[in-house]
Amino acid sequence: MQLIIQLDAQTARQLEEIQAHTNQDISLVIQQGIGLYYQQLQPHRQFYIETKRQYELVCNVSATTSSN
């Protein structure tokens, strides 16, 4: 996938600084940044899935109990 983006001055400076310290291509720096962000989101995704599952269980139990 090819992206064309505009960065504000602060973000551009941060990207340049990361690139200077790591000697990595800008594309690799961005790919790794996306990978890190994705990893951070995983616990939140798992929490959402578990919360939804518990809610569905409670609703199913309530519906079963109230129909008796």
Rank of each mutant, 00 (worst) to 15 (best):
H21E: 11
Y38I: 15
Q2V: 11
H44Q: 15
E56H: 09
Q40S: 10
A9F: 02
E17C: 06
L57K: 15
L41N: 07
R13K: 10
D25M: 07
V29N: 02
L3M: 05
I26H: 05
A63L: 14
V58T: 05
E50C: 04
Y37F: 15
Q42V: 12
R13F: 10
I26Y: 09
C59S: 14
I49C: 03
A20M: 03
Y55F: 08
Q32V: 11
T51N: 08
Q42H: 04
Q46C: 04
R13P: 00
L57C: 11
Q40A: 07
D25H: 11
N68T: 11
I18W: 05
Q24A: 10
Y55N: 09
Q14M: 08
Q6H: 12
H44I: 14
Q32R: 15
A9K: 09
I5N: 01
A9C: 03
T11F: 06
D25L: 09
C59D: 13
Q31H: 12
Q19N: 02
H21Y: 09
V61D: 14
L7N: 02
I30W: 04
M1P: 11
V58D: 06
Q2S: 09
Q39Y: 09
Y48E: 14
Y38A: 15
S27D: 09
L3T: 00
L3Y: 08
L15E: 00
L7H: 00
N23V: 03
N68F: 10
D8C: 01
V29F: 03
S66C: 04
G35C: 05
Q14S: 04
E56L: 09
T11G: 01
E16F: 00
R53F: 01
A12N: 06
Y48A: 14
N23S: 10
R45I: 15
I26D: 00
F47K: 10
T65Y: 09
L7K: 00
L57Q: 15
Q24M: 13
E16L: 05
I4N: 11
D25R: 12
Q24D: 08
Q32F: 07
Q24S: 08
K52C: 01
I18R: 09
P43K: 00
Q6Y: 13
L57S: 14
T11H: 05
L15A: 01
M1S: 10
Q32K: 15
T64R: 10
Y37I: 14
Y37D: 08
L15Q: 00
Q10L: 10
M1F: 03
V61C: 07
I4L: 07
Y37Q: 14
L41M: 10
K52S: 04
N68W: 05
Q6N: 14
Q10H: 04
Y48D: 12
D25F: 03
